[in-house]
């Protein structure tokens, strides 16, 4: 019984990956919108773009980690 509950929990935790995908999409989309308005400033902001993507994605990875822990370590 406990194992099944853990599986359900893992599935729920995986929703976080989708949320992180929304976040990363937001970052990249807004970067593109800004870059198309002012292409000359775009190149200097790629580092910021990657940092933003990394921060947004890290939280998705956390939820993935929770799912893994529920699947394999609980």
């Amino acid at each position: 019984m406990e194992g099944e509950l853990a599986h359900i929990g893992a599935g729920l935790a995986a929703i976080g990956s989708g949320a992180a995908a929304i976040g990363v999409g937001n970052v990249a989309g807004n970067y593109l919108a800004g870059a198309l308005r002012n292409p000359s400033a775009a190149a200097s902001q790629t580092a910021t773009l990657f940092i933003g993507i990394a921060f947004a994605e890290a939280l998705g990875i956390f939820s993935f980690l929770v799912a893994l822990l529920l699947m394999f370590a609980v």
């Binding site: 990394a54 921060f55 994605e57 890290a58 990875i61 956390f62 993935f64 980690l65 893994l68």
Partner: peptide, 16 residues
């Protein structure tokens, strides 16, 4: 924490 888990998590997730 996030610095280390980001790297390991990404690599692990892809391989898994």
């Amino acid at each position: 924490v996030s610095h280390s888990i980001r790297l390991a998590g990404n690599v692990m997730a892809g391989h898994a």
